[in-house]
C-alpha cells in the first residue's frame, strides 16, 4: 500500500524557458493595457467620425504612427534632441553638483547645518513652477533648461552622497588614519567608493527626475526649438493625437533609457562587489 513513488518530475515549462516564465507577467499586463487602450479608443463618442477614419481624440495603438510624415518626424526628432540633451547634460551637472555638495557637507558639520535645510526647501518646492521666473532671469536659453533640470534632479544625489560618505565605518577610517592617508586620498580611495552604492541609488532617482525636468520643464520654454513637452502641447492644440502620443512615448523611452543606462553602469561599477 505504501508504495514509494518517485518524486514528481518538475514541470517542463518552467524548466525549459525560465526567461519566458519571467516575461509572462509583465507581458500580460502590457496586453491588458493595450486592450484597455483599444477599449477606450472605440468607446469614445465619434472618435472615428473623421473623414479619413483617423482618430479625433485617442488613436488606437495601430493608428499611432498614422500622422507620422517626414516633417512630423523631423519635428519630433529635433524636440527629442533638445530634451535628450537637456536631460543628459542636466543629469551630468546634477551628479557633479550633488556629489560636490554631499562631499562638502560630509566634510563639515557646519556646512551641513548651513545647507541642509535649504536643500530640503529646494527639494520640496515643485521647482517646475519656478521655471517661468528662471526663464525671466536667465532668458529662455539652454542654460535655463539646465538650471531647471539640475534643481529638480540634484537632491537625491546630494543627500545620498552625504549619507554614503557618513556610512563609512570607524574602523575603515582608522585604517586610513594609521596609514597616514591625506584627506584627498581618503576621499578617493575610501569615502567615495564606499558611498558609491548609495550614490547610485540616488542617481537612479535623479535620472528619472532629470527626464521629468527636461520634458515637463519644457512646457514653460516657449522660445526657440521646442522640446518634447512643448511639442506635445503644439500637437494637442492641433489635435494631432497620433504624433502627440508618439511624442509622449518617446519621453517615456528617454526615461527608460536613462534608467537602463544607470542600471548598466551600476552593474558594471557596484554590483560585482556590493552586497546590500
Amino acid at each position: 500500500m505504501n508504495e514509494i513513488r518517485p518524486p514528481a518530475t518538475p514541470r517542463n515549462s518552467t524548466h525549459r524557458s525560465p526567461r519566458l516564465a519571467r516575461l509572462a507577467p509583465p507581458l500580460a499586463v502590457l496586453g491588458l493595457v493595450i486592450a484597455g487602450w483599444y477599449g477606450l479608443a472605440y468607446s469614445l463618442d465619434n472618435n472615428f467620425a473623421s473623414a479619413d477614419g483617423s482618430a479625433l481624440i485617442i488613436p488606437p495603438p495601430h493608428q499611432l504612427f498614422v500622422g507620422l510624415n517626414a516633417a512630423t518626424v523631423s519635428r519630433i526628432a529635433s524636440a527629442t534632441w533638445v530634451s535628450l540633451g537637456t536631460a543628459a547634460v542636466g543629469l551630468l551637472l546634477a551628479i557633479l553638483v550633488g556629489v560636490l555638495l554631499g562631499v562638502a557637507m560630509s566634510f563639515s558639520r557646519s556646512l551641513e547645518s548651513a545647507f541642509w535645510p535649504w536643500l530640503i526647501a529646494v527639494q520640496v518646492t515643485p521647482v517646475i513652477v519656478l521655471t517661468p521666473i528662471i526663464v525671466r532671469v536667465v532668458g529662455a536659453s539652454f542654460t535655463a533648461r539646465l538650471i531647471v533640470t539640475v534643481l529638480i534632479a540634484f537632491f537625491p544625489i546630494a543627500s545620498n552622497t552625504l549619507f554614503g560618505m557618513r556610512s563609512v565605518g570607524r574602523a575603515l577610517h582608522d585604517v586610513f588614519t594609521l596609514a597616514g592617508a591625506s584627506r584627498w586620498h581618503r576621499l578617493i580611495h575610501l569615502q567615495l567608493p564606499a558611498a558609491s552604492p548609495a550614490i547610485f541609488a540616488g542617481l537612479r532617482v535623479s535620472a528619472g527626475l532629470a527626464v521629468i525636468g527636461a520634458v515637463v520643464g519644457d512646457f514653460f520654454f516657449t522660445r526657440g526649438t521646442p522640446g518634447l513637452g512643448r511639442l506635445i502641447t503644439f500637437f494637442f492644440q492641433d489635435t494631432r493625437s497620433g504624433p502627440m502620443f508618439v511624442t509622449a512615448l518617446i519621453a517615456a523611452l528617454i526615461g527608460l533609457c536613462f534608467f537602463v543606462a544607470v542600471a548598466a553602469l551600476r552593474r558594471l561599477l557596484v554590483s560585482p562587489w556590493h552586497r546590500p
Binding site: 465619434n46 473623421s50 481624440i57 489635435t239
Partner: peptide
C-alpha cells in the same frame, strides 16, 4: 475640450 473644427466632428 478640442478646437472648434474637432468639436464639429465629435458633436453631430
Amino acid at each position: 475640450e478640442s478646437p472648434v473644427v474637432t468639436e464639429m466632428f465629435l458633436d453631430d
